[in-house]
Design a protein around this nucleic acid. Structure first.
Ligand SMILES: Nc1ncnc2c1ncn2[C@@H]1O[C@H](COP(=O)(O)OP(=O)(O)OP(=O)(O)O)[C@@H](O)[C@H]1O
Length: 813
DNA sequence: TCCATACTACTTTTT
DNA sequence: GTAGTATGGA
């Protein structure tokens, strides 16, 4: 389709207004799936093709690399053939680009970028050094530090700051700058400072860049908003670009925990006034039942502006909510569902979404068991693996010989007798001579060491002989691997299977560097670095390190076989799939147990669920389980409170827990396999034939919002499926109301075979003491068992019956 | 200094 | 269940 055709037929009136908007500032506020991203892409194409804007004068900022990738693809379609492409990427990657374009303005010429692991490692070191372990965990400190840093730049928050954090902050910053490292926050800060302090820099920037577009504005941080202001306004706060266009949706704000500020949407309107505000209410992505479900859910949030999002894609029987007995069954059910889908859909049109990464493991296991190809987005990333990070440390040292953190990582890996004691010497020495690079320091130290250590140091330094930042990355990496005998080290230190996977990973790493080199050879204009100076466009080690710093995924050839995508709800933002599976709809998982304290947090969890639902185009499967493995223990679960907010008329509930696995497959085949879109199909389930058309009829509420009514007892992880009276047809799958899920197991289930130690008191927990649980109310402890040093299992008699739970879940009364 | 063993804490979410 | 740390003996 030509772009003209697209403008005429591929956009509705409102979208077109935003795309063709001539006022300098435009803001699109619109619900999920209403084509906001489409507006951004179309506007970029419009500016280039209709307004003859130089592509390199356009900057499009997205929230994630994945979103950037998709947008690039869409734009490239409109601009087929053109080698000059606009910048599309995250705020962070754009800031990195600016810093690299202006090496003379950066505090250190060759800096390393710390990822979050490096950050936590450094903070942990500082905490341990100052004996603060007892007071704060490294993860907590990292999080608070980032918040502190972000606030520092924009407004003064000194008095509210945890003094501990300020202390750590000082040391963290100085360690970082001695090592010539920047963390993710620094990338934004450095550029922010450039804009604030360097008029020349700002002038050059505004001469070159004329249009800025920002996606997902509701999740931009204060710093990012500030940055946008500095980029677009002159010193008199007058608009100084040709256009700025942002799009966003308050209902999809899910990143407040990392500093996202929804009110940026309002600030945008005042800071860039006059702003043309465009609202879009039609959803093009989802079929009606799915959209209505999402609308009903989000209505429960009080802190929002009501919207009237509608879809004109009628459909029936599109949402099923499955109640599983355990997380294993949940995973198995997902796998069987995907199997049933695979007959009519491509696997990459299906996504499994979850709240936290650890949930992916069980799902993975099930998918492997059924040989379903899948791909995990996020989670433990390729470049976060230990073996890769070790080698990266060597590479980083080549590019940045001041990188203390990398040196500490590399020096004794593979182990060469240079342990913590030597590390301390090294740190002391370096502290005295901060302007020497690591080779000079090590040469210095070599003189007063024993022979064994001398040799070890010699060996270590030899690895770097002849390696330079301007060489090809693959050459450097292969040299490092060979000179350190890295494969040998892996085989010596890990058992066969583990060693082999690690060796494989290293080989893949080498492949990735080779691929990176060839990519440069093939396409002259490497889109991301399109506007970088020529010498920065050669595939050097240095450039490779910058390229991967903000990328977690490894560079892969082309899209290979279609695979089911597994990711967190956060990572799914901005994406869409034919079929979406959301697993783990239990209180404590979604909403997360850490977000139950305040209403704000709870509403963000609800938005997260909303984002998940609105990723689906055609089918939506929701799952929860009555038991879940966490920390190697089976913990009872209650269905998510959000499930009770979904109208039953839109959501078909199934008691999967009562089905045999074969029946589960039949269930899915009947739901999906028949091609419900085109014609009503005749079911051939069991002995009876039956139309599926009544799938969507209202049912009585099954599990009430007040979970107190539901009665649970401890039961084995895999109870035998219970025997049911056969029910005719598909209807038999529908969850019965008022039927307690585990009535059958209550008497049958063996009592936990842990010896009673109820007479004893453990950690202050005593039988007979009164406790309060958030949901189950008051109760009395009948049994105490040790779970760990600090945690205990309490068997508590509540009004609703006995429950066994971790002591951390109850309060003493 | 290295290794084996025991014991803890651990799970949000991302650039 | 596992990664990371603490301890103690070789
Ligand atoms: N005018 C239109 N006509 C037909 N399809 C459209 C139109 N606008 C958008 N779409 C389609 O609707 C879907 C959602 O669009 P898009 O991803 O741009 O929405 P969005 O507002 O960015 O969504 P979200 O906020 O949920 O990420 C896409 O598949 C897109 O192709």
């Amino acid at each position: 389709m030509s772009f003209d055709d697209f403008i005429n037929s591929g956009l509705n009136n409102f979208q077109r207004q935003a795309v063709e908007c001539d006022t300098p500032a435009a803001l699109v506020i619109a619900g999920a799936g209403s084509g906001k991203t489409r507006v951004i892409t179309a506007r970029i194409a419009y500016l280039i093709l209709k307004k003859y804007a130089d592509p390199t004068s356009i900057v499009a900022l997205t929230f994630t690399n994945k979103a950037a990738g998709e947008m690039k693809e869409r734009i490239a379609k409109f601009l087929s053939g053109s080698k000059r492409l606009p910048f599309v990427g995250t705020f962070h990657s754009y800031c990195l680009l600016l810093l690299r374009r202006n090496p003379s303005l950066v505090p250190f010429a060759n800096f390393s970028i710390m990822d979050s692991d490096d950050q936590v490692d450094l903070i942990k070191k500082i905490i341990n050094k100052n004996g603060l372990q007892k007071k704060i965990s490294a993860n907590q400190a990292t999080y608070q530090l980032s918040t502190y840093k972000n606030n520092l730049l924009v407004r003064n928050m000194e008095e509210f700051v945890n003094p501990l954090i300020r202390e750590i902050y000082q040391e963290y910053e100085s360690e970082k700058s001695e090592a010539h490292c920047l963390d993710f926050d620094d990338l934004l800060f450095q550029v922010l400072q450039l804009f604030r302090k360097n008029e020349e820099f700002k002038k050059t920037f505004q001469q070159k860049v004329r249009h800025i577009l920002v996606d997902e504005y509701q999740d931009t941080s204060h710093v990012q908003h500030e940055l946008l202001k500095l980029m677009s306004l002159d010193s008199e706060k007058k608009f100084n670009l040709d256009s700025v266009c942002a799009v966003g949706d308050e209902d999809q704000s899910i990143y407040s925990w990392r500093g996202a500020t929804v009110t940026n949407m309002l600030s945008f309107q005042s800071d860039f006034a006059p702003v043309k505000v465009v609202k879009i209410e039609q959803n093009y992505r989802s079929v009606k039942p799915i959209l209505e479900l999402a609308n009903e859910l989000i209505k429960n949030n009080r802190l929002r502006n009501p919207k009237n999002l509608w879809s004109d894609r009628p459909a029936k029987n599109r949402v099923v909510s499955a109640y599983c007995r355990s997380s294993e069954q949940e995973a198995d059910t997902i796998a069987r569902f995907i199997q049933a889908c695979a007959k009519s859909k491509k696997l990459d049109e299906i996504a499994v979404l979850y709240r936290t990464h650890f949930q992916s493991r069980q799902i993975e296991e099930a998918l492997m068991y059924y040989s379903i190809p899948y791909k995990i987005i996020g989670g433990l990333q390729f470049y976060e693996r230990k073996e890769i990070k070790d080698l990266l440390a060597y590479m980083r040292l080549v590019a940045n010989p001041f990188d203390k953190l990398s040196l500490m990582r590399a020096i004794n890996c593979p182990s060469r007798g240079l342990g913590p004691k030597f590390e301390q010497e090294l740190l002391d020495e370096w502290g005295k001579n901060p302007f020497l690079d690591f080779k000079q320091i090590l040469e210095l130290l070599k003189n007063d060491e024993t022979n064994v250590k001398k040799l070890a140091l010699e060996e270590f330094l030899n690895v770097f002989k002849g390696l330079e930042a301007k060489q090809f990355p693959a050459y450097c990496l292969e040299n490092i691997v060979n000179h350190t005998d890295y494969y040998g080290y892996l085989r010596r230190n890990f058992d066969d299977r583990e060693a082999e996977t690690k060796v494989e990973n290293v080989k893949e790493f080498i492949n990735a560097t080779l691929l990176y080199e060839s990519k440069y050879a093939v396409t002259e204009a490497f889109d991301n670095l399109e506007a970088v100076f020529e010498e920065q466009r050669t595939p050097t080690l240095e450039n490779f390190l910058y390229e991967i710093a903000l990328l977690q995924e490894k560079l892969e050839k082309t899209k290979d076989v279609a695979r089911v995508q597994l990711m967190t709800l956060h990572a799914a933002k901005g994406l869409e799939f034919n079929t979406v599976i959301i697993s783990g709809l239990n209180d404590g998982v979604l909403p997360s147990s850490k977000s139950l304290n305040t209403n704000d947090e709870l509403e963000e969890e609800r938005r997260l669920f909303y984002v998940g639902i609105t990723r689906a185009q055609e089918y939506l499967l929701l799952l929860n389980a009555y038991a879940r493995n966490s920390f190697g223990q089976i913990v009872e679960q209650v269905p998510s409170r959000f499930l009770s907010e979904l109208p039953t008329s839109l959501c078909y509930k199934v008691d999967v827990e009562k089905l045999h696995s074969v029946e589960v497959t039949m269930l899915w085949q009947e739901w999906i396999g028949g091609g419900l879109d085109t014609q009503p199909i005749v079911l051939t389930f069991g002995r009876s034939n039956r139309l599926l058309s009544n799938l969507n009829e209202p049912v009585e509420m099954v599990r009430q919002a007040n979970h107190e009514r539901v009665h649970y007892t401890a039961r084995p992880a895999h109870p035998e499926p219970c025997r049911r009276k056969p029910v005719e047809g598909f209807e038999r799958f529908r969850k019965k109301s008022n039927e307690y899920p585990h009535k059958e197991f209550e008497s049958a289930s063996p009592k936990p075979s842990v010896e009673s130690i109820s007479e004893r008191s453990y950690g202050g927990w005593k039988t007979g003491c009164a406790v309060r649980h958030d949901k189950f109310g008051q109760g009395v402890v009948i049994k105490v068992e040790k779970a760990s040093e600090k945690d205990f299992y309490l068997t508590v008699a509540f009004k609703i019956g006995q429950k066994k739970l971790l002591s951390s879940f109850v309060k003493r009364v």
